[in-house]
Amino acid sequence: MSNDLLPSSQLPGVTRFQWQQLLGPIVVVVIVAYAASSVSASFAFLTEGTLALLVMVLALQVLIGNSGVLSFGQAAFAMVGGFATGLLTVPVRIKENVLDELWEPLKMINMGIYPSLVIAVAIGAFLAFITGLFLMRLSGLAAGIATFAVLMVADNVLFNWKLIGPGPQVMPQVPKFGFIDESIAIAVLVMIVVYLIGISRRGRLLRATREDALAARALGASIWRLRVLFFTASGGIAALSGAMYAHHAGAVSARDFYLGFTFTTLAMLVIGGASSVWGAVVGTILVTAIGQVLLVFEGGVTLGSIEFTLPNGVRGLVIAAALVVILIWRPRGVTGGKEFRVPFLSRT
């Protein structure tokens, strides 16, 4: 097995199930989410949106963390997920008023949030499977560009084709989640799934291919098959993220999932550490927190007798700078790509 050949102490990414690795991030997410959402209504709103982003970062982690293949295209599946759930849950009357060019059967469908989430995930995973069949023959830069092309294709199709969506406008009146608990529960579920996928036999094999493609192949691993599998899983989770986002914001449009979304979530993953669930969690929380602190400074902060005010729009620059500094300081991200470990407790 791959553990014998590649001792786990030298590799980011885990090989054996450990409760602390799974429960640590979950406890942190649950505590931070409830604490933040109790601060104010707007923090609750932000937290719910951030949980959707966390699910997207986990979708990226499943693929990039395990396979080492770059993908700039997963937002395409989030877009599909958001549109799918929107079309399935927006009231028929609103679709008739607002989306006049929509395909008639799509206008007539209406269902609850949860069945619709399942369908959105299925559609996302299916499309990811089809695209993955072709794209996962590539790696490195070629994969990065090809997946980026997927995003551009999705954006162009969904932005212009009004038969299957709102086109360039927003789709309003998407039913919202009633409680923050729903987003937290979904995020926790995804964390469990992603962790289990990561430590599964196939997960370990895929990480072996990431470290040494030849050796892994000699073990009988089909790199392509493994990557397609994980690309599909990642696409499904990304679609779930897009759908969560739609039910959070109450409206959805193609522009919600384009470059800003892609690079924010990638930055979260890279800053946290791409090869662990813990890294995804830390990165998401850290980038959101930095953004919020800067937002406060943009509004003006008085410390003693001095008032600090940052010009509007400085946030983007500082987050970018933080990304560079963190990567110079810790190229594998803040967590070093390691899973959660209770500090000072037994080393395993």
């Binding site: 990039i64 770059l70 930055a267 890279v270 560079v324």
Partner: peptide, 12 residues
């Protein structure tokens, strides 16, 4: 990771 970082920071 390096490529990712450069791309991501540029776009940010």
């Amino acid at each position: 990771a390096g490529i990712l970082a450069v791309a991501a920071s540029l776009s940010l």
